[in-house]
Amino acid sequence: MDFGPFLFLATLEGLVQAAVLCLTALGLSLVFGVMRVVNVAHGEFYMLGAVIAWWVTSIVGIHPAVGFAAALAIAPLAVGAIAFAGERLILKRLDYNPEATIVATIGMLYVIQQMALLFFGPDPRPVEAPFYFRIQFPWFGYSGYKLIVVAAAIAILLIAWFVIAKTRIGLVMRATQFDGDTAQAFGIPVNRVYASVFAVGAMFAAVAAVLIVPIRQAHYLMGLDPLLLSFIVVILGGLGSIRGTIVAAILIGLSDGIISVFFSPTLAKMASTLLVALVLVFRPQGLFGREEL
């Protein structure tokens, strides 16, 4: 294949990676932005989303599309409920202390991971895509499902933007993010906002996992890579900046996809990590972060 078509193929792969990363990192960024909690267990919520998707599709076996639709509805809700419970039982009791919550979410990471190993087993499990079709370009055919993943991620991000920027729920979240004390002094139940945001953040990771699991398979250790990439994205974009998160996810996703196709996935991770190191040295607040952060 010539360089041009090969670059186009690599860009498409990068776009898929970027789409999933946008959703996953947005969840992590929301949780940090509003709660100032570094959620080390975020990747495990992603893994749980994939595992629950496999479980749901294996039970609802009428047609792959029906099973997938059920998974897309059930997995994020189940993961959100688990995250909500974790927030109420653990993070709230730690009074959202930044250091203590890091340790606590590391603990949550291992508990969720080992529970998945116990009940789901160590083997990767495939989930059938809801439909198969190929889009034929002049140089190669490409999975239609992968492009649907990109479109779905864009749709979800637009909905998220609308909710955050244009609705009362979003206003309450933003007010809590800027100043929790003052928000409470105006009747905002800050603790309930925290619990909801933690659950919604986990749901974003779960949706991303459900969308990608027909391409990558479910596995109890699959949470590590998205966690690492999400941290890279959130640091690069600027801690707590949603706009920065989206831009950084597209940058990292595209570069990861393109470098992986042209060279190797390991080199892609090295490049991302180097980029973060450079940003930390020359622009510690990230691309869109506020200086005081």
Binding site: R168, L171, V172, R174, A175, A183, F186, G187, I188
Partner: peptide, 9 residues
């Protein structure tokens, strides 16, 4: 938006 926060109370 600041006023809206007060009104919502």
């Amino acid at each position: 938006e600041n006023l809206e926060i007060g009104l919502m109370c």
